[in-house]
Design a protein around this nucleic acid. Sequence first.
DNA 1: GTCTATAAATAGATAGAC
DNA 2: GTCTATCTATTTATAGAC
Lengths: 179, 179
Amino acid sequence: MGWNKEHKPQVRDQILESAAQLFMNRGFDNVSIDEVMQNAGLTRGAFYAHFKSKSELYAEAIRDAALKSIHAQEDAPPVSERIAKYLSLEHRKGESMACPLAFLVSDVSQQNNTVRDVYTKVFKGFVKKLTESSKEHISDQEALKSAVLMVGGMAVARALNDDTLAEQLLTACQQAIDL
Amino acid sequence: MGWNKEHKPQVRDQILESAAQLFMNRGFDNVSIDEVMQNAGLTRGAFYAHFKSKSELYAEAIRDAALKSIHAQEDAPPVSERIAKYLSLEHRKGESMACPLAFLVSDVSQQNNTVRDVYTKVFKGFVKKLTESSKEHISDQEALKSAVLMVGGMAVARALNDDTLAEQLLTACQQAIDL
DNA sequence: GTCTATAAATAGATAGAC
DNA sequence: GTCTATCTATTTATAGAC
């Protein structure tokens, strides 16, 4: 029964996966613990064996989603391609990919320090990754600008209820980034 | 008793004012109708004489806040100054001013079409205003890019739990805008 | 660790008196 | 139009059996 040792972490990961998916598209308040657990194939009661509170789950889910998002790009394509993919209409839909930085910006603004700390850490990683990816040496300012055009651009594009305008906006962001 | 005719609209406006203030800093779900009404000096029960639902209130509050925000800049200072004020740490605090476009981006993404339509309309107005304000003729692309740097920049800055980084980010956005 | 049952609190919306 | 009272539903979190 060697897999007993792995069981808890494995389930925890399923819950995180479920949570990330739900939070990302509906925010913190519109997702109940019940939904998260059902989506993970469990019931409510089991939740508190893995997390202290819903808020803790939120922070962990953001961290987890960011890690996986980075891991998914391990075989790093050219920067320009990664940026194009980030600023795509497909990403805007949030089905196959979803960046927590963009999808949860103003949601996170209203959360406690722990959650905002995780968000901040993830954002710093995002900017660092941008800096390292660019062939030319770029300033911190340039990197921050590009990060805002990506994260902020996607966030605004998602709020707009006008697909044409959203597409124009995403294109404008893409062209304004010169890495 | 001539003021009877004015009474209802006046109260409605108080409710809108109260709602805008609360929604802007805490989002849709973290604000109850009870709070909005108490903050406006009334009780819950009176709410439905003015609005059909909480969602309708949200849409109206965003529209209202945007209109007032524009009205407040009627005596338009130079564009560069308005941009600097928008991308200031003071705005980030959300006390004396608060742009719904930035403060509620991802909150709005999760709302119904009516709310998102209002957001979209307000955003279009924001971009148009930017275009008209710039002395040189600028392309739609350039205007969209600037709008993202302002709205998206403020949204991200608010999520970050690091004042120093937030300030750097706001500065980077400001310098990346050339109107 | 996971389940069912339940506590305890909160919120959106409606009804009816004034 | 505004008030109090209430219905109804939902949700976080806990307790205790297995």
